[in-house]
Design a protein around this nucleic acid. Structure first.
Ligand SMILES: [Mn+2]
Ligand SMILES: [Mn+2]
Ligand SMILES: [Mn+2]
Ligand SMILES: [Mn+2]
Lengths: 222, 222
DNA sequence: ATATATTTTTAGACAACCCTAAAAATATCT
DNA sequence: AGATATTTTTAGGGTTGTCTAAAAATATAT
């Protein structure tokens, strides 16, 4: 009797999931509204509806958290999103900055068998093209030791394993700098003035990274 | 300013397209309602809306035809449907009776680049897993000489190139008979009573096909 | 602690898509 | 042609998800 969720409902669940991924604290109506690019009034309506369906725990004026079911659903949508992104990049040859929007649509396709087969076809990838972990069918994330590039000292180096910012403009900027997942980055100098870094990329070209860029690069120390 | 069509609108256009594929005559409200599994009243509402948007030519009490734009849109949705079905069978290993429903969802994903790349990835297929022609990006169908198996005489043979019925139960029935696209079928006997055929399949096993089955098999004479 | 600012909810409305029942138009039969 | 049957449209209404504006609750500041 429990009919499948609408795309909108799935997107709300994902928004809450992402908003409190670490803290698991209740998420403000306004925060959800910002994620969903909608009005606070619409969020209130939807929270009532999702609470009704036991997908969120919601108390008026106190924000919303995901219920166990809601959390499972959100994780499953994220799994689908990241598997599709991986498909688009690895099989169809898209670049990492092009895939997010398309995956936003594909993630709502409703077929367990499809996702199982896609996962298999891709060789059971553990990370998507942005370095984000792909949850397994039972919702487990493969965590990884990682730190932010800005935290490295001069003469230390790391391998890029992920990005915190997923905007097209940021990813294109990295393309221009010849920085991709797997690229090794060695810190040569740090400016005392603006914290910008002179780094050498893949043991070759030296480039300058602003602190704003460095803060969005996730690396494994090497 | 012309926002993308909704899934429902696309499905209506496809319904009209399929209903008058050969004749191009105006399609009855009731016929569309049957295709869409909805009420005649809903169809009337939608026809007004689509006529407003210049996607159909509609005159009350006289049915609807697709406008050139509507026809282009319908063809593009069919192209997407059939490319996705091909992907599901050829790359993900689905069986031909499993893919239609999933493709009904995938066909609405909105990205020209995606379809271009998918087409290329699949090697520019001309026919889908059911033998239906895949229109090119500019809407051209690759037609083929074909006839219905029932039209063959005893001792004549043909290669299966398509099926007229796409129901899961029919396709599974063919699976059971070891009949797939490309299978060669030789007529051994025709019953004068019920027109059922004794045929030999792939130069091997003899099976009996009811006329109802034979009428739904499209073959190229061999 | 009271006033002010911010956040959230409620109220009322709209668009898309659907429904059933009744009315109107068209088609068929004798 | 006139009566009857069928098809189609209109009328009125429901749900989902959206919006703006006003009201209510909560948080912040003096
Ligand atoms: Mn993404
Ligand atoms: Mn990603
Ligand atoms: Mn199909
Ligand atoms: Mn098909």
């Amino acid at each position: 009797m429990t009919r499948p969720l609408t795309q909108t409902e799935e997107n709300y669940l994902k928004a809450i999931y992402k908003a409190n991924e670490k803290t698991k604290a209740a998420v403000n109506t306004n925060t959800i509204a910002a994620y969903m690019k909608t009005s606070a009034a619409s969020v209130t309506d939807m929270m009532k509806k999702l609470a009704q369906k036991d997908l969120v725990i919601y108390e008026r004026y106190k924000g919303a958290r995901l219920s166990p079911t809601g959390s499972k659903t959100a994780t499953s949508v994220i799994r689908k999103h990241r598997l599709w992104e991986t498909f688009l990049v690895q099989k169809l040859g898209f670049s990492w900055e092009e895939v997010h929007e398309i995956a936003e649509e594909l993630e709502h396709i409703n077929s367990d068998k499809l996702i199982t087969k896609l996962d298999e076809y891709l060789g059971f990838p553990k990370y998507d093209p942005h370095g984000d972990p792909i949850p397994s069918a039972d919702g487990k994330f493969m965590l990884r030791e990682q730190m932010i590039l800005s935290q490295l000292d001069v003469d230390e180096s790391g391998i890029l394993v992920g990005v915190k910012n997923h905007e097209t403009s940021f990813l294109s900027h990295l393309n221009n700098l010849n920085i991709a997942l797997g690229t090794s980055i060695l810190i040569k100098e740090r400016s005392g003035f603006d914290k910008s870094l002179k780094v050498s990329v893949s043991k070759g070209a030296e480039v300058v990274l602003t602190d704003m860029v460095a803060k969005n690069l996730l690396i494994r120390k090497s």
